[in-house]
């Protein structure tokens, strides 16, 4: 299983911004119920899009800089990056089918 790796303020630039393939970042925190519901779906997506999209989790409690840089004010938020820029955003819990549509629109 291609589990999403943790990304932090320190390595966000290298892992996400400079990535040559699109990246999905799951902004979450341990105290957020809906985030815990999103996590297994993101793990499944990481499997299905393995090789085409990279997947990361960013703990907003520990990585305030990145969260505030992208104006995250609600979690879960999923941000999809392409060429270092955020190109798609999903706020709140959404069904897997909708997340796939979002990813497909970016990958295509």
């Amino acid at each position: 299983m291609a589990k999403p790796a943790e990304v932090t303020d320190a390595d966000f630039e290298t892992e996400v911004i400079k990535s040559t393939v699109p990246v999905l970042v799951d902004f979450w925190a341990p105290w957020c119920g809906p985030c815990r519901m999103v996590a297994p779906i993101v793990e499944e997506l990481a499997d299905e899009y393995n090789g085409r999209v990279r997947f990361f989790k960013l703990n907003t409690d520990d990585n305030v800089q990145t969260a505030s840089r992208y104006g995250i004010r609600s979690i879960p938020t999923l941000l999809v990056f392409k060429g270092g820029e955020p190109v798609a955003q999903v706020i709140g819990f959404r069904p897997k089918s909708e997340l796939k549509r979002t990813l497909d629109s970016v990958v295509a």
Partner: peptide, 17 residues
Amino acid sequence: LTGRGVSYCATCDAAFF
């Protein structure tokens, strides 16, 4: 402004403020 300060879940989002 939902998700940008408008929220229906303080337990999810209050920590950002």
